[in-house]
């Protein structure tokens, strides 16, 4: 094994011996590197998943984050994206069966982080729609790079709001809720979506024509307000532009 591989082998493994090429075999010296790496990764996960941390408590989260980091070290130095595998890891923890919504909350926090760092791209404006009014129902839309939607069996929007600056209290977490994340300027906006609005926007984000997406909306709920949802989608900045006939 190369020197670097031997040095790296113990960085995430507290039971590993001091690498043999190290002259100063006092374990606490090599342990400084191990500690720096571990503490840094735990801090990165804390920064990326603040609501999950609050739900689990600081100490429990830190233990879980350490265990995750040992199995899934980052593959990129862009630590604000670290933790792609964290939601699935949370879902697989037997000890967390009392928190069935945790993985979805983590997915939404991931969406929040991606939106925060997404490219600065103009959003579709009401005027762009007005210009295409004669063929409105055939329009397709290009999603803004910050846009994220998720439909959950749990009240993810309420749980997220309560645990990112709120009082932490959610009356009824076991009700389905969908969430929309957008970033029309520099501030990330998190919006709770009724099921029919989610059905409509998710279809549009997938590339459906407006008529087809509207059908999905009405299928999800008779009270679907098409005009109101189009207004919401423009205000929130879900899309960057229309997709023209040639597909651009």
């Amino acid at each position: 094994m190369q020197a670097e591989a031997r040095f790296a082998a113990g960085l995430l493994d507290p039971s590993a011996p001091v690498p043999e090429q190290v002259r100063d075999q006092a374990p606490r010296r090599y342990a400084v590197y191990r500690n720096n790496v571990t503490v840094g990764l735990v801090k990165a996960l804390e920064a990326n998943f603040p609501a999950v941390r609050r739900l689990l408590g600081e100490a429990y989260f830190a233990g879980l984050a350490r265990a995750f980091a040992q199995r899934h070290p980052p593959e990129s130095p862009l630590l604000f994206h670290y933790g792609a595998a964290f939601p699935a890891y949370l879902a697989a923890q037997d000890d967390l069966s009392g928190f069935p919504y945790l993985a979805d909350v983590a997915r939404v926090e991931q969406g929040w982080r991606r939106a925060y760092h997404a490219a600065d791209v103009q959003v579709l404006e009401a005027a762009d729609l007005a210009l295409a009014a004669d063929r409105l129902m055939t329009l397709r839309f290009k999603p803004h790079p910050a846009t994220f939607v998720l439909a959950s069996s749990y009240a993810v929007h309420a749980i997220l709001s309560a645990n990112r600056g709120g009082d932490g209290v959610v009356a009824d977490p076991a009700r389905p809720q969908a969430v929309l994340i957008t970033r029309p300027a520099h501030d990330v906006i998190v919006t709770a979506l009724p099921a029919e609005q989610h059905a409509f926007l998710a279809a549009l984000i997938d590339g459906a024509q407006l008529a087809e997406a509207a059908e999905r909306g009405f299928a999800a709920g008779e009270s679907f307000d098409l005009a109101g949802t189009i207004r919401l989608m423009v205000e929130a900045g879900v899309f960057q532009s229309l997709i023209t006939q040639d597909g651009t």
Binding site: A5, A8, Q21, Y33, V37, G40, P73, P74, P77, L79
Partner: peptide
Amino acid sequence: AWSTHDTAYFNDLLPVP
């Protein structure tokens, strides 16, 4: 210093001989 080995990024400034 170094910080990447294979695909793993270790967020520290690791020493070289």
